[in-house]
Design a protein around this nucleic acid. Structure first.
Lengths: 253, 253
DNA sequence: ACCAATTTGTCCGTATGTATG
DNA sequence: TCATACATACGGACAAATTGG
């Protein structure tokens, strides 16, 4: 029990496996081991830390999950920089678990997507434009709703990339993942949504080509409003929780 | 080697410890075990999964890291919903590793913080206002720069909470963490920054009380611009990378 | 406040499958 | 092809901490 008269805080001793994880994490964060470099073998780490194999393995698992360590197909350990999509899917998961509503999702996206569109118009290069147009071309030919929504998300991710702001890029991803399944439902119930979606994408790219930031932002806003109108036609609750989207966790690779 | 004549794809078998983690994750995500409930003991899990204890432990480490499982001080395992701050610190870490610049950080925050301020003004209750005022009161009395910046971050987190949009709330956290150390430097080199900071916070809360969304957004923008001006006076590169902020990983608790 | 049972943290040794050279 | 290195998984063991009488 904690006595109010106690003079000292209890001494916290982190389990060895945590210390192992922290030590490795420090090495990586402080740049002493860099991206792509091999981490020693397990036996090596056992030797350095002076703990048991099992303990090292538990420590490694901690980092493996957070994406700071990767295994290639030979199962060797490499240092890796956490990939955006890995983080994004965790954030999406948390959002779903916290039962956020479509309203929250939409309002946040309204702000963030508009900002990326503006940034994209300001910073797009000719190459960027080509990439965006290529995306639109593939979208026009998309057969299934699955690929269409896939490409729609890719478009928004591209816009974020073109905006050259990786903070916004990372901020929009979780929401992007959560929009996908709903867009599929919208496309199914509101057939015109497809052409309106494409139209908006085209206008946004046009604005980017002309470096028209206001136009890009304007069309992105319209695009988002369209989504909302479509959503309301599906009969789902705007203030209801976003449901779970199950996605396969990626295997070691 | 992969032969082009091969009829079958190689069968991928996930390691046992991953399967353990996935199985537990599924139980949680599908709501069959809910927040706060005890997960069985290790021995129990060993029995259910029919694998070795070390294997179970490795699986548990994966989930422990992602925050889906928590330990109380007795080290028992409980199901837990990933806390925002845990995710946020991972995202910050990724941002640092990707060497994002202050410009990216600031431009993104400009957008997100303004949106939270607007949302806060629209949705603030009397209780919310009290909480915000309490924060300002504590900031006025803050002795050290450390606590001042701590409270500054708390203010912005509060504004996000008051905006009642958890997507924005989660989106702003990583940037908030990264601003902190720089604000300390600013306060050190630009003494007036402290009073200007407080002034802006007061104005934002005033706007919230009057449900003046435009005013709240305006003052937040000024507040952010102030930060930028202060930053430039410190002589740091606006287009330089945000450096590492070491933060103690949270012990089991 | 003490004791017995439970549970976690750690360690050791070994067997097996797979990748690499 | 074969040997070697390595990750995966297993069994068993013990100390320290925690729980619940």
């Amino acid at each position: 029990m904690q006595e109010s008269s106690d003079k000292f805080e209890r001494i916290l001793v982190a389990p060895a496996y945590q210390q192992v994880a922290e030590a490795i994490e420090r090495e990586i964060m402080e740049g002493r081991i860099s991206e792509g470099e091999r981490l020693g073998t397990e036996a090596e780490l056992v030797r350095q830390f002076g703990v048991n194999r099992s303990t090292v393995r538990e420590g490694i698992r901690l980092l493996e999950q957070s994406g700071l360590i990767r295994r290639d197909q030979s199962r060797r350990l490499y240092v890796s920089i956490p990939r955006y999509n890995r983080l994004a899917s965790r954030v999406s998961r948390a959002l779903v678990l916290h039962q956020i509503t479509f309203r929250e999702l939409w309002e946040a996206s309204m702000v963030i997507e508009t900002a990326t569109a503006e940034g994209a118009a300001a910073n797009a290069t000719a190459d960027d434009i080509r990439e965006l147009e290529d995306n639109i071309a593939r979208m026009e030919q998309a057969k299934s709703r699955e690929t269409f929504t896939e490409l729609d998300n890719e478009f928004h991710a591209l816009i974020a990339k073109v905006s050259k702001n990786r903070v916004l890029e990372l901020a929009r991803e979780p929401a992007g993942l959560l929009f996908k399944p709903t867009l599929q439902i919208i496309l199914q119930k509101v057939p015109i949504a497809r052409s309106r979606n494409l139209e908006a994408h085209r206008k946004i790219v046009q604005a980017c080509r002309k470096k028209d930031t206001k136009g890009a932002a304007l069309w992105m806003r319209r695009h988002m409003l369209d989504w909302k109108l479509g959503f309301e036609k599906t009969g789902q609750q705007f203030d209801g929780p976003v449901e779970l989207v199950r996605q396969r966790p990626d295997r070691n690779r």
